[in-house]
């Protein structure tokens, strides 16, 4: 007759513990690192200073003018930048760089700061229509010298806010963001 050894005895226990520990570590890694959508400071081709522009009274939508009519907020064209910078602060290093792009007829290769996975369909238009402030998701960009992702825009972050809305049931539907 075979002797049935206990599941949690001797070497098996050690192997089981190691397996469990590694699974927990993997789970922790997946939870805390891969779900994080904030990125480290990026090296932008031009050290654009959001603070200076905001303090001079330029609203977000002057440059990111897609927000009211499109899913994407949009990055301003070099033409829009040059609209002011043909005359403003033309001698500064960064503006000289900008003028270089303008003369070479090249777009500025900005690096993405805020990132959403491909299966997430965020729409700026709906949020602006509903009266959500830019800062609710993007942080206080008007006080940032260099734009940084300070808010971790994961699904929990979205749903925390959706849960507080009057049309909560409609906003909890999967197809609102995934399709």
């Amino acid at each position: 007759m075979r002797v049935v050894t206990g599941l949690f005895s001797g070497r098996r226990l050690v192997v089981g513990m190691v397996a469990l520990a590694s699974m927990l570590l993997l789970a922790a890694y997946l939870l805390f690192f891969t779900s994080d959508t904030t990125t480290a400071r990026t090296d932008q081709p031009i050290a654009f200073n959001h603070e200076v522009h905001a303090q001079n009274g330029i609203p977000c939508q002057y440059c990111h003018n897609g927000v009211t009519r499109s899913p994407v907020a949009g990055i301003p064209s070099v033409e829009l930048c040059m609209g002011c910078h043909q005359h403003v602060a033309t001698e500064k290093n960064e503006i000289v760089k900008l003028a270089g792009y303008w003369e070479r007829q090249e777009p500025i290769p900005w690096k993405r700061v805020h990132y959403q996975p491909d299966y997430v369909y965020f729409n700026h238009q709906s949020h602006i229509t509903a009266g959500v402030n830019c800062g609710s998701c993007h942080g206080d960009v008007a006080r940032m010298k260099e734009a940084e992702a300070v808010v971790n825009m994961n699904m929990g972050f979205c749903l925390d806010c959706h849960a507080e809305q009057k049309n909560k049931d409609a906003l909890y539907d999967c197809v609102v963001c995934h399709r």
Partner: peptide
């Protein structure tokens, strides 16, 4: 595969 009450459709959530 779930029923979207909002849209009254069968929905497939691919990432799930």
């Amino acid at each position: 595969s779930y029923h979207s009450e909002q849209e009254n459709l069968n929905v497939q959530v691919y990432n799930r």
